[in-house]
Design a protein around this nucleic acid. Sequence first.
DNA 1: CATGAATGAGTATTCATTCAT
DNA 2: AATGAATGAATACTCATTCAT
Lengths: 195, 195, 195, 195
Amino acid sequence: MRREKPKFKQIIDAAVVVIAEHGYHQAQVSKIAKQAGVADGTIYLYFKNKEDILISLFQEKMGAFIEKIEQETEGISSPLEKLYVLVKTHFSALAADPHMAVVTQLELRQSNKELRHRINEVLKGYLRLIDRIIMEGMEKGEFRQDLDVRLTRQMIFGTLDETVTTWVMNEQKYDLAALADPVYELLVKGCAAGR
Amino acid sequence: MRREKPKFKQIIDAAVVVIAEHGYHQAQVSKIAKQAGVADGTIYLYFKNKEDILISLFQEKMGAFIEKIEQETEGISSPLEKLYVLVKTHFSALAADPHMAVVTQLELRQSNKELRHRINEVLKGYLRLIDRIIMEGMEKGEFRQDLDVRLTRQMIFGTLDETVTTWVMNEQKYDLAALADPVYELLVKGCAAGR
Amino acid sequence: MRREKPKFKQIIDAAVVVIAEHGYHQAQVSKIAKQAGVADGTIYLYFKNKEDILISLFQEKMGAFIEKIEQETEGISSPLEKLYVLVKTHFSALAADPHMAVVTQLELRQSNKELRHRINEVLKGYLRLIDRIIMEGMEKGEFRQDLDVRLTRQMIFGTLDETVTTWVMNEQKYDLAALADPVYELLVKGCAAGR
Amino acid sequence: MRREKPKFKQIIDAAVVVIAEHGYHQAQVSKIAKQAGVADGTIYLYFKNKEDILISLFQEKMGAFIEKIEQETEGISSPLEKLYVLVKTHFSALAADPHMAVVTQLELRQSNKELRHRINEVLKGYLRLIDRIIMEGMEKGEFRQDLDVRLTRQMIFGTLDETVTTWVMNEQKYDLAALADPVYELLVKGCAAGR
DNA sequence: CATGAATGAGTATTCATTCAT
DNA sequence: AATGAATGAATACTCATTCAT
């Protein structure tokens, strides 16, 4: 299994650092190789091509991200609480890894359409997780019955994503994790005044 | 005023078509010139460089977009209704211009960080418009009093943006404008069941 | 006669200024037109093409230069004295027109081989003048009898040219005209100690 | 040391041939690469950019030229004889390498001002060598005591340079080396008849 | 005569990928 | 397995010249 070989991780980690520091368009293969401490050619013993590095990077990191959120929400029975933990974990995981935040929110989005479609494949795992929470919430009566699952998931993911992106573009100046509570409340109650 | 010269618009429209059809990275200057029916060199009589075409494109189109939404919401006194019209207009404007939708949601995001920052400057006008609706809503008691304006705006914009992007990535297969009502309701009421 | 039309001179003078200030490779036709206060297209009513401007420039200025030296040396009977006046006039004419000095010594030499050959045609008038002084000097016994005219002329012109070029490259910091006496003596006596 | 790698010399030699045959402005990088038998990109493993090829070319060739003249004049005690050997070697070295003669006398002078200044830096080594001969000649009493070293050097270099350039522009039709004797005599004795 | 908007040919340089060692 | 020298395709921009007004 290539994912277990030490150089596989070594190269992916190097890619994250190089992209975060130099930006997507300045992340040449040779720069990644240098950062990883291997020869340019060695990259191609572990990855099919440059795109494959980026896809693998996203798979590895996003996979861990999803797994973490799944673990955190696993034992929880209340869908609303699950949603809260998801928001909290989403924010704190990215706040804890500033390099990764820059890479996922800004740099990787500069990739071409094909790569972005591949990335979306990976993202789907996360979106399905959100979908499951929504459906469970509707079943258990904690969420409104008339929700459109896809639209609700788009609201949740869109809000989280926009919040993190704004935070990254503001150079991560404020405490992202602290936004979990008000954002959760917004998603749950909406913006209108209650009756 | 260069913006009023016919070739200025002609070239920008050509750029939209070329980028939508061939993608950002395949939108060579010569391809845009050909589509516009002018010589390569003519481009440079109206634009400083390639990046300037893209920035101008975004300014022109986004400017018209914002202006349209401002006009539509102008006479309305209820902030909630303003929000509804904003959602509706946002969706229908992009649904009415599929090329532009592809360009703004997918292609232009591949641009480098500098261009994206310039684009964000233009976007700010739109975000400020949303902010004003939120503040007015709080003042008039239609929105909750404890809202964080920035977070609320990020929810609204993030949700709209994610919804449009998903629609574009699904090849605009369904009716985007029809989503205005449920999305509006989601934003206003949130996803939780009422008490 | 085009040479007598005011715009002809106007454009040539503009070319000298532009080339001296911006350098040969930055002396675009449009810049010369602007400096001359005419439209780009007007240039082509007076000159066949850009090269023609430069050739005409050289002909006009070099023609006046040669004429001046011919006039100064005309009444003089002694070839040695003629040579002295030539050296003196060569230096003082260029010292009096710093723009022109930069143009002839540095900028115009960046032109392509063909233009340089055309320029050499013009220069030949000057070289023939030097030749005549040498031959007269040999006839009148003031110059050595065994001189090779071409080589002697190359020594004279090469020395003057190198001296002016060095002066221009040193930013015309010292008094060029003051070098006429020692340079003349060098050309006449050579560098060896007399017997 | 890049100068010792075979491809470094290979590319420089190719540049000399291409420039001599096609002229400075027609010496595209791809043409040089083809002549050198390498890929375009390989050029940039050995040279920073195109200008660097030309500067290196001049440094390599002019360096060898100066070294050769230094070696030839080394053991000689008489400054006059040193001057003779310098003239002789200058002419015969350029006569032996017609390509290089075209490149140094005609083509490289078309380069822009910056490159020409870099080239002059290299030339200074040669001018200093001439200066040393002049000063030694004055000390040993073989040269006149009242010489201005700079002017004398300008006469010597200017004469040699003009002689070679004329020879190149006449398509190297006559025997340049044979001119060493009369040119030397001119430089030493001047053109005036002895007393 | 004069204008100036429009033309379009031409070129240095980068970098993902290969393959002989 | 690992290396790194070599490859070569691909593209924005300038500016001399024209010609309809």
